[in-house]
Amino acid sequence: MAEYERSRTMPAQPERIFDQAADLGRLDSWLPDDLHVHAEDLPAVTVHEDRTDQDTSALLRAEPDQMRIEWGTREQGSYAGWLQVAGIGSGASEVTVHLSFFDDRHDPGERAAADALEGSLRRLEEQVRRDTDNPAG
Results as ranks from 00 to 15, higher is better:
residue 1 M to V: 14
residue 4 Y to K: 13
residue 4 Y to E: 10
residue 6 R to N: 03
residue 9 T to F: 06
residue 9 T to D: 05
residue 10 M to A: 06
residue 11 P to W: 01
residue 11 P to R: 08
residue 13 Q to P: 04
residue 14 P to M: 09
residue 15 E to P: 05
residue 16 R to S: 11
residue 16 R to H: 14
residue 16 R to F: 14
residue 17 I to L: 07
residue 17 I to P: 01
residue 17 I to G: 04
residue 18 F to S: 11
residue 19 D to I: 02
residue 20 Q to R: 15
residue 21 A to I: 04
residue 22 A to P: 07
residue 24 L to P: 03
residue 25 G to R: 13
residue 29 S to H: 13
residue 29 S to D: 13
residue 31 L to C: 07
residue 32 P to A: 10
residue 33 D to A: 14
residue 33 D to Y: 11
residue 33 D to F: 14
residue 34 D to Y: 13
residue 36 H to L: 07
residue 37 V to K: 03
residue 39 A to E: 02
residue 39 A to R: 01
residue 42 L to F: 09
residue 43 P to A: 05
residue 43 P to L: 07
residue 44 A to L: 14
residue 47 V to A: 06
residue 48 H to E: 04
residue 49 E to H: 05
residue 52 T to K: 04
residue 52 T to N: 05
residue 55 D to Y: 09
residue 58 A to K: 00
residue 59 L to P: 00
residue 60 L to Y: 13
residue 62 A to L: 09
residue 62 A to C: 13
residue 64 P to W: 00
residue 65 D to G: 02
residue 69 I to K: 08
residue 69 I to R: 09
residue 72 G to S: 05
residue 74 R to L: 12
residue 78 S to M: 03
residue 79 Y to D: 02
residue 79 Y to N: 02
residue 80 A to P: 02
residue 80 A to L: 04
residue 84 Q to E: 08
residue 86 A to F: 05
residue 90 S to D: 03
residue 91 G to W: 01
residue 91 G to V: 03
residue 92 A to G: 00
residue 93 S to C: 01
residue 94 E to S: 11
residue 95 V to L: 02
residue 96 T to D: 04
residue 97 V to R: 15
residue 102 F to R: 05
residue 105 R to W: 05
residue 105 R to V: 13
residue 106 H to I: 08
residue 107 D to C: 11
residue 107 D to A: 10
residue 108 P to C: 10
residue 108 P to H: 09
residue 110 E to I: 12
residue 110 E to P: 12
residue 113 A to S: 15
residue 115 D to I: 12
residue 115 D to S: 09
residue 122 R to I: 03
residue 123 R to D: 08
residue 125 E to H: 13
residue 126 E to H: 08
residue 126 E to D: 07
residue 129 R to K: 15
residue 130 R to E: 13
residue 130 R to D: 12
residue 131 D to S: 06
residue 132 T to L: 09
residue 133 D to K: 14
residue 133 D to I: 07
residue 135 P to F: 05
